[in-house]
């Protein structure tokens, strides 16, 4: 970069900085919040104030976020299925590469963690990972919905709603238990039940991580002065990071525990080996 360009860039940054500072000071005290910060944070954690009407039910905004994520991903999947997948080539283009990397990552994680049986596991962690990631990234868009009290709230991550986090944790645990039963019968259940704290830890890990992100975002956006520059760090970077980290952690844990409970027992392995030996002998005799 030449000296002239450096000078130009410095001037631009200084002007932007001055404008931001002017904005902060001129708008200080101008915006009137409908709720105080304690109510906002309390509502972000337990959702007892702001409810959204859904077919006659009063639900948390997190559920609406979940439905929005499902809608967005459904439209995306439909578009990809109809317009992109039929045009897949053996030498992939950029978008095909992204899709294949996503599927290949979850498929590889499932194969590594559970080499014996992993078809269902890879599909589950693909869906769960995509749901957590997209749901958390939804926070960034700040989609507004109107509550039953007439307030406007931005849609939070679906898993920052404790009901959503409990659903994800318990479903993942049940999935692990079912995997154990399908692969190892009651022996598999024993292995899964040993980890009885898993649904609680998985649920609250998700809930804690996402609600903390939501609280920080609420705090930042509550005060007008913090709404300049700071959201770039705490809003965008933190959201992107914890979207990735939480999707990775949950899928990794599910894959690991599923692999553990679905691993064939020694008795089963002996049986399988004996069966394979018998088949070999029969084949040799037939030959």
């Amino acid at each position: 970069m030449s000296k002239k360009q450096q000078r130009k860039m410095t001037v631009i940054f200084v002007v932007i900085g001055v404008l931001l500072l002017a904005g902060i000071f001129l708008t200080a005290g101008a915006s009137a919040q409908e709720e105080d910060i304690v109510t906002v944070i309390r509502d972000a954690v337990i959702h007892d104030t702001n409810k959204i009407a859904l077919f006659g039910l009063e639900v948390n905004p997190g559920l609406i976020s979940g439905l929005a994520v499902t809608g967005i991903l459904t439209v995306f999947a439909l578009i990809v299925r109809i317009f992109v997948i039929p045009k897949f080539t053996l030498v992939p283009g950029r978008f095909q590469m992204i899709l294949e990397t996503m599927v290949g990552y979850f498929s590889g994680l499932a194969e590594d963690s559970s080499p014996h049986k992993n078809r269902l596991l890879s599909a589950y962690i693909f869906a769960a990972g995509l749901y957590i990631f997209t749901g958390t990234m939804l926070e960034l868009f700040g989609i507004q919905v109107v509550t039953t009290a007439g307030h406007s709230v931005a849609l939070p991550a679906p898993l920052s709603d404790i009901n959503g986090a409990i659903m994800m944790g318990c479903t993942s645990y049940l999935f692990i238990v079912v995997g154990g039963i399908l692969n190892n019968g009651l022996g598999g259940v024993k292995g899964a039940l040993k980890e009885f704290s898993l649904p609680i830890s998985m649920s609250f890990r998700l809930f804690g991580a996402l609600v903390s992100g939501a609280i920080v975002t609420e705090l930042v956006y509550y005060y007008t002065a913090l709404s300049y520059v700071v959201p770039v760090l705490v809003g965008v970077l933190f959201t992107c990071l914890h979207a990735l980290i939480q999707a990775y952690v949950l899928t990794m844990l599910v894959a690991l525990f599923y692999g553990e409970v679905s691993e064939p027992s020694e008795k089963k392995l002996r049986k399988l080996a004996a069966k394979a030996q018998k088949t070999e002998v029969r084949t040799a005799e037939a030959a």
């Binding site: 639900v59 997190g62 559920l63 979940g66 439905l67 994520v69 499902t70 991903l73 459904t74 999947a77 439909l78 990809v80 299925r81 899709l99 599927v103 890879s122 599909a123 589950y124 693909f126 869906a127 769960a128 995509l130 749901y131 679906p158 709603d161 009901n163 959503g164 659903m167 994800m168 479903t171």
Partner: peptide, 18 residues
Amino acid sequence: LHLFNFLLLFAILYFLLY
């Protein structure tokens, strides 16, 4: 409701994308 939503998403993603 969250579970129903997630299972629906799981089915959609499985058949349409994965």
